[in-house]
């Protein structure tokens, strides 16, 4: 669990705060989304949590350890995958992982075996003889993840991790984050692509101009992302409700059927109605996406 209290960062004296008085808790067993426009302060916040940037004020405690004053202990519980990972360019994956393992007190042989195992797991074992300078961005992200996995910490920080990944990589990362959640790990995922959070996050913290705008909690998130289906049918009868019931709550409003609280995949609904001899003249899906909600929150001026 990561607790952030009143976290503030100024890069220049008397300048604008990159992050201002941020309070947030990242719970175990949850994926906490962190959304904001470019320059909103997401990366600065994550870097302060990771211990690579010093806060101007405020605290970050990682499983009870302060990241500034008890860094070694705090860092043992954190795995950080930055947006653009940078490694010693001339190093090779296994030797660098053995080096990293040294910080956790892992002996050479154990570290080497573990490195091989993890590199296979993140699917870059075949590139073990390549220097890291020759890795693609996606491979670097996988290596960055691998370097976190050497001890499998309790808390993971993923900064725009899905950027620059191929579809297979995105799928891998999604599944990996879901696995971490199952293992009761705390996952903090920052992104400016809100649709990703819609599918993954248990809650989403919205940041704008360095300030936390709101935290969309699980129940709110559900409501925010629910759709409404409006079906126009010429020959409405009582039986139609039996067909619609498994999909959600249906009610007739002025010659139209409005289906809310969608419970299952409705991609086959139109076909099903036609098969049952209903004359469907209109079928529309409406709903407020997280993205719409986000821009509503931060104000129209920020929408590009």
């Amino acid at each position: 669990m990561i607790k952030i209290k009143n976290l503030t960062k100024y890069f220049k004296k008397n300048g604008k705060a990159a992050v201002s008085s941020l309070d947030l808790t990242i719970n175990d067993g949850e994926i906490t989304g962190f959304a904001g426009l470019n320059g909103a302060g997401k990366t600065t916040t994550i870097r302060m949590i990771a211990g690579v940037t010093l806060p101007s004020s405020g605290t970050v405690t990682v499983d009870g350890a302060d990241i500034v004053h008890d860094k070694v202990k705090a860092s043992k519980s954190i795995g950080w995958v930055p947006e653009l990972p940078n490694f010693e360019p001339q190093a090779k994956s296994i030797s660098l992982m053995i080096y990293y393992a040294g910080f956790y007190g892992i002996d050479y042989k154990t570290a080497k075996n573990r490195a091989i195992e993890i590199l296979k797991e993140v699917n870059i074992y075949d590139a073990r003889k390549m220097k890291l300078i020759n890795y693609s961005q996606g491979m670097k992200k996988r290596f960055s993840l691998a370097s976190c996995m050497i001890i499998e910490p309790q808390n993971f920080l993923f900064d725009e991790i899905l950027n620059g990944l191929d579809p297979e990589g995105i799928q891998f990362m999604r599944n990996y984050m879901k696995e971490l959640k199952k293992k009761n790990k705390a996952v903090f995922l920052s992104t400016h692509i809100l649709s990703e959070l819609q599918n993954l996050a248990d809650k989403v913290a919205i940041i704008n101009n360095g300030k936390l705008v709101t935290i969309i909690k699980p129940d709110e998130l559900e409501n925010v992302t629910k759709s409404t289906i409006t079906i126009k049918i010429k020959n409405i009868d009582d039986k139609i409700m039996n067909i619609l019931q498994p999909y959600g709550k249906a009610k007739v409003e002025g010659g139209e059927i409005v289906l809310t609280d969608i419970q299952k995949d409705f991609s086959d609904l139109n076909t099903l109605l036609v098969k049952n001899n209903y004359i469907v003249t209109g079928f529309s899906v409406e709903g407020e996406s997280l993205e719409d909600y986000f821009f509503k929150l931060i104000g129209g001026d920020n929408k590009k």
């Binding site: 870097r47 990771a50 211990g51 690579v52 860094k71 070694v72 202990k73 860092s75 043992k76 954190i78 950080w80 930055p82 653009l84 990972p85 940078n86 490694f87 010693e88 360019p89 990293y100 910080f103 956790y104 960055s144 370097s147």
Partner: peptide, 17 residues
């Protein structure tokens, strides 16, 4: 390493500045 950000990958490990 410091200017290019490479050192950050090490600093995120259990070691103080």
């Amino acid at each position: 390493d410091k200017a290019s950000g490479t050192l950050d990958s090490v600093l995120s490990k259990p070691i103080t500045r």
